[in-house]
Amino acid sequence: MAEFLEFWNAYLWPVLWIIIKIVLIVVPVLLGVAYLTYAERKVIGAMHLRKGPNVVGPFGLLQPIADGLKLFLKETIIPTRANRGVFILAPCLTFILALIGWAVIPFGEGVVLADINVGVLYLFAISSLGVYGILMAGWAGNSKYSFLGGLRSAAQMVSYEVSMGFVIITVLLCVGSLNLTDIVMAQKSVWFVIPLLPMAVIFFISTLAETNRHPFDLPEAEAELVTGFNVEYSAMPFALFFLGEYANMILMASLTTILFLGGWLPPMDIIPFTWVPGPVWFALKIAAVLFVFLWVRATFPRYRYDQLMRLGWKVFLPVSLAAVVVVSGVLMAFGLAPGSAG
C-alpha cells in the first residue's frame, strides 16, 4: 500500500493532474469553436439584415450541436485513388495542431499549462505547421481542385509568416522576453496596441491570411476551386478541418490579444475594472478580436491571388522590416530598451 502511495504521488498523480488541466483547457476551446460558428452565422446574418439560425433550440442556440451531430452520423467517404494514410492523417494533424498551441497561452496571472521561456516562438512554430494539414489534404485527395487549393495555401501561409515574424520581433523588442506572461506584464502601463498601432494592424491582417479567412480564403475559394483543399472530404474528417480552422482563429485572436491588447489585464487599473477576474477580460478581448474577423468576412470581397502575394511581399514585408529598425532605434535612442541602463 505504501509503495503504491509513493508511486501514486511520484508518477500517477502528476500525470493525472496534467490530463485534468488539458481537459479544462480543451473543453472550453471546443465549446468556443462550436459557438463561434453560431456567432459567425448570427453576426453575418445581422449585417446582411437576415435572422441567421433561429430554429433549433431557443434563438437557434442548439444549431452547432445539431450540425456536429449531423457530420458525426454521416458516412466517411475515401476516394479510391486517394492516398489513404495521408488522406486520413491530414485532418487529424490540422485539428491537433490547432489544439496544442493552447498549451502555452496564459489565461490569467499564473493560469497557464506550460509557462515556457520561448512561448511566442512555440506559438509561431505551431502556426507555421498548420500549412501541412492543408497541403497534405490537397495532395492526398488526388483531385486537381484540392491540389490547387493546397498549393495556394502553402504559398500564402509561408508569405505572411515572414511579416508576422517581424511584427512579433517589434513586440519582443519592447518586452525583452519571449515568455507570454512577461509580454502581458510588460503592458501594465500601456497596451502595445497604442505605441505599435500600425504593427497591430499588420499583425491582424496577417493572422487573417494565416488562418485562411476572408478576404484571403483563396485555398477554399468556392467560386473557382469548388471548396479548395477539402473538396474530397466528408463527414468527420471534414468536421475536423472545420473545427481546426475555427480553433486556429481563436488561437490567433488570443495571440493578438496577448501581444497587443494586454492579455488578461483590465483596461485600467482602477476599482470597477479590477473586480472582474483576469480570464474574463481575456475572453472578452478574444471575443472582440473574433468579432472583427467576422466583420471583415461580411464586408470585404476576396483578394485576387496576385494581389494577395503583392500585399504580403511588397507591402507588409518592407513595412514590418522598417518597423523593426525604427522601433529598435527609438528604444535605443531614448534608453527605453528593456535591460538597458536608464
Partner: peptide, 11 residues
C-alpha cells in the same frame, strides 16, 4: 521547427 519544418520543408 519554424525554419526547417515551417518554411524549408514546405517549399
Amino acid at each position: 521547427v519554424v525554419v526547417y519544418v515551417g518554411a524549408v520543408a514546405v517549399l
